[in-house]
Each structure stands twice: as structure tokens, then as C-alpha cells.
């Protein structure tokens, strides 16, 4: 059921972005979303939680509760915060296996990637990998 949760949220985001017909609107919306990001604890802003491969600093942490993963994050750049908040909205509150299987196709659908520099696109992939790594850790725990 939760797999469709992810898909539903992706669909929601795609619909929201369809309201904007230019990149400025999309960026302004992303920046707004960044302001609502569930923030990571200040003391976790260290190397263990840092996402490598971003030009801006990004930290992500996951809490595991009753079989579900909940992400928190922060960045020193606003647009980056907005992008993570989209990722968190899609992935947070789902089971590790569902997170691992998410194809995150909404990123292409909302036309975000064409407005990201290759550098930033690398950073985006690094953020997704970091989140999936958390999912992998807890997914293995379930097996044991």
C-alpha cells in the first residue's frame, strides 16, 4: 500500500508543479518548500550525516519508528533545502523496502533536472543515495 503512497505523493507534486508555467515560479515554490523542511538536530551536522558531492553543505538523518523511516535534513543553500524537502515529502514515513524501490521519477516529470547544473544533479543523486542507504540499513535489520 505504501508503495502507492510514494507514487501518490509524487503525483501530488507533479500536479502542483503543473500550475507553474515558468522556471521562476517553480524555483520560488521550491524555495518556499525549503523553509518548511523538517530540520536535522544541530549536533548531527557533522561528517557522518553530510552528503558528499554537493557544492552546498547538506546533512540528512533518518529515524526508524515501527517499521517506518522518517527523514530530517538541512542545507546552507535555500534551493538545495527546497529540493531535499521534496525528496523527504516523497520518501519520509514509508517502509525501508518501499524507499529502496522508489524510482523518484517525479524529478524528471516536474522539469527540475533541466534547470539543475550537472553539479547540482550530481548532488541530487547523492542525496537520494544517502536516503536509500539509510533505508538499506533498516531493511537489512528487518531481515535479521
Amino acid at each position: 500500500m505504501s508503495e502507492s503512497n510514494i507514487k501518490n505523493t509524487e503525483k501530488e507534486i507533479i500536479d502542483e508543479f503543473e500550475l507553474f508555467n515558468d522556471w521562476i515560479g517553480k524555483y520560488e515554490y521550491i524555495i518556499e518548500l525549503g523553509k518548511k523542511l523538517p530540520l536535522i538536530d544541530e549536533n548531527l551536522k557533522n561528517e557522518n550525516y553530510e552528503v558528499k558531492g554537493c557544492q552546498s553543505k547538506v546533512w540528512i538523518n533518518a529515524d526508524y519508528k515501527d517499521g517506518y523511516l522518517f527523514f530530517k535534513a538541512d542545507s546552507d543553500a535555500l534551493i538545495t533545502k527546497g529540493i531535499i524537502s521534496l525528496l523527504i515529502r516523497v520518501l519520509s514515513g514509508n517502509k525501508p523496502d518501499e524507499i529502496l524501490n522508489a524510482d523518484m521519477n517525479f524529478i524528471n516529470e516536474i522539469g527540475l533536472k533541466e534547470h539543475l547544473s550537472p553539479n547540482r544533479a550530481n548532488g541530487l543523486n547523492a542525496m537520494i543515495s544517502k536516503m536509500k542507504n539509510f533505508a538499506m540499513v533498516y531493511s537489512n535489520q528487518n531481515v535479521n
Binding site: 524555483y27 557544492q55 543553500a77 535555500l78 538545495t80 534547470h115
Partner: peptide
């Protein structure tokens, strides 16, 4: 108060090529 990366991204979308970092 504005991260260089954010500045560079907006400028890029306006067709202005700068370096950040």
C-alpha cells in the same frame, strides 16, 4: 545571507554563466 550556489543557479536560469564554489 545568500548561498553562492543559489545565486549561481538563478543566474544560470537567466542565461548568465558564472562560477560558484
Amino acid at each position: 545571507g545568500i548561498h553562492p550556489y543559489d545565486t549561481g543557479s538563478i543566474l544560470d536560469n537567466l542565461g548568465i554563466a558564472v562560477r560558484t564554489g
